[in-house]
Amino acid sequence: MKMKSRVEKTYIYGILIFFSLLFLAPLFWMVTTSLKSPEELYLFPPKWIPSSLHFENFKEAWISQPFTQFLKNSLTVTILATLGQIVSSALVAYGFARFTFKGRDFLFMVLLATMMIPWEVTMIPLYMEFNFLGWINTLKPLIVPAWFGAPFYIFLMRQFIMGIPKELDEAARIDGANSFQIFYKIYLPLMKPILILVGVFSMLNCWNDYLGPLVFLNDQSKYTLTLGLAQFKGMFGVDMEGIMAITFLISIPPLILFFAAQRYIVDDVSKSGVKG
């Protein structure tokens, strides 16, 4: 396993670099577009490196709408919703993975089914419900439902838990621990990678959510970053520099988070004691 031949390594690096280029080239264009002057934007064949870098494009785009306020709202929603998502999804996933109870499989199918509901048709009734609760034009519709778990994350965590050998909790049970103690003391530490993975997904999901904020928020002071971004795209015109600049800026926080979090997701698993 550890004795890789040089040829094999060259192949692996070759493929990795090839795919990296595939994934990065369009993004490179996004970054350079946001730095170009208006005259250079639409040249063909395209200019990969702008002749002068217009960093002021970022500032102009940022102050063209109250993006600092949007950032605050996005942070509020993302942090609170992600927190709720992790806690509730972990509990529910454990419930489905580690217990046998009547109707479990039926309920789990229902849970999976809720992933498939097309939002186009539940959006209006949901709007009615939030309107009835007085939640329209507040951040609550974007935060509160997250505290009741989401099927995608529950399903993901359930698959992970089901891969953990059961001998662990049987030992703990003999020591007199109850289910909640077992969950808290044994499973949560083991679930760290998957908790962080769900955290990253959920955070990105909230951060980039466009539809929820569009439908449930009215006042600009409540807008999130994606709604701010959408304001560069009207019915009759698109401000490409603005979109590229803001997209670049709002991609940075999730990227940093991902870069920092990834080693906990994929590198530490083997050390955390789960033996496959």
Binding site: I124, Y127, N131, L214, N218, Q220, A230
Partner: peptide
């Protein structure tokens, strides 16, 4: 006056708010 900018999500948002009588 609260200016609400729906961009190209205009019809969608308007349909939701008309549908829900708000």
């Amino acid at each position: 006056v609260q200016v609400e900018a729906y961009g190209d999500g205009f019809d969608q948002k308007l349909a939701a708010s008309f549908g829900a009588k708000n």
